[in-house]
Nucleic acid binder design. Structure first.
Lengths: 149, 149
DNA sequence: GGAATTAGTTAGCACTACTAACGAAGTATA
DNA sequence: TATACTTCGTTAGTAGTGCTAACTAATTCC
């Protein structure tokens, strides 16, 4: 019965539906995240910097799938708000070393709490099995994105 | 073995990872979608209009989780490109009736083919089981988003 | 030493989001 | 009926995020 609908056989159909679901999921979240005072790109960059440790601007841009000029502006905004700080790279004066400040980490955790309170509140209505399915999907997507091409 | 890691038990963790995966998935897709000449919001609105049938601006804005002024601009851009056309609503002169043109439908299908060729190409590397897991997750997300609150 | 490459920035454009304020049309009510 | 309220969509102004092109400064290669 669970397999009665062929919901998952066709890569094209899965692509379509995941794409649409991702768009609308993020639109919901965006409304919550503005509470942090940061835009989505700033939040995401700060998050990468926090979990990935200090890195250069180019690496951060690559991690975020954005061009260097775009990341340059995002970082400038984060610096103005003292959420990120830069140090010069010993050994290569062209490079900069970006690091999340304590303030940045605090803000990120608060934003994460708000987002989770919002999203997870809805996800809690799901059965354990459904939640597990979402978790597995996230895992698969992470792997796929990591080894993209 | 498959259950060795508790990847899915915690709603907060699932939320976090789905959120991040959605962000990065869409960033990949965005790079492809610019080929259509439309921005992501225009593409998504056109798609809703095509699959949901003709509707008013307010409804479309609500469906897309955007404010009316935002949708007003998106629709204006689509009209300039003859992808959407408006008619007056018989019975309420304040309302407008938005409809995807044949040109809009054609463009949307072409964009969809490009996106699928790109994404599904990567998804094809997945096992049938993994693909099925993504399909189920899309289904669950769709339902959750539909009955949001 | 000079040329080519690499890291990051600046400038300028386009798209998408918001709020505030408005006009026009419909509805309710005194 | 006249006035007030509500609803629908638009206009104006601002902010954030994406891009390319062009630039400076530092490094590497020959």
């Amino acid at each position: 019965m669970t397999q009665a609908r062929k919901i998952s056989a066709d890569p094209a159909a899965v692509t379509d539906r995941l794409h649409s679901a991702a768009i609308h999921l993020l639109r919901r979240v965006r409304r919550q995240d503005v509470a942090s005072g940061l835009g989505p790109a700033q939040l995401s960059a700060l998050s990468v910097l926090m979990f990935g440790g200090p890195m250069g601007l180019g690496e951060l841009a690559a991690a975020e799938q954005v061009r260097p000029p775009t990341m340059s502006r995002i970082v400038a905004a984060l610096e103005r708000q003292k959420l990120v700080e830069r140090a010069s790279d010993a050994g290569d004066a062209r490079r900069i070393r970006l690091r999340a400040t304590a303030k940045g980490q605090k803000l990120l955790q608060k934003g994460r709490r708000l987002r989770i309170a919002y999203l997870a509140g809805h996800f809690q209505k799901l059965s354990a099995k459904e939640l597990s399915a979402l978790g597995e999907a996230a895992e698969i997507l992470e792997n796929t994105l990591r080894n993209w091409s």
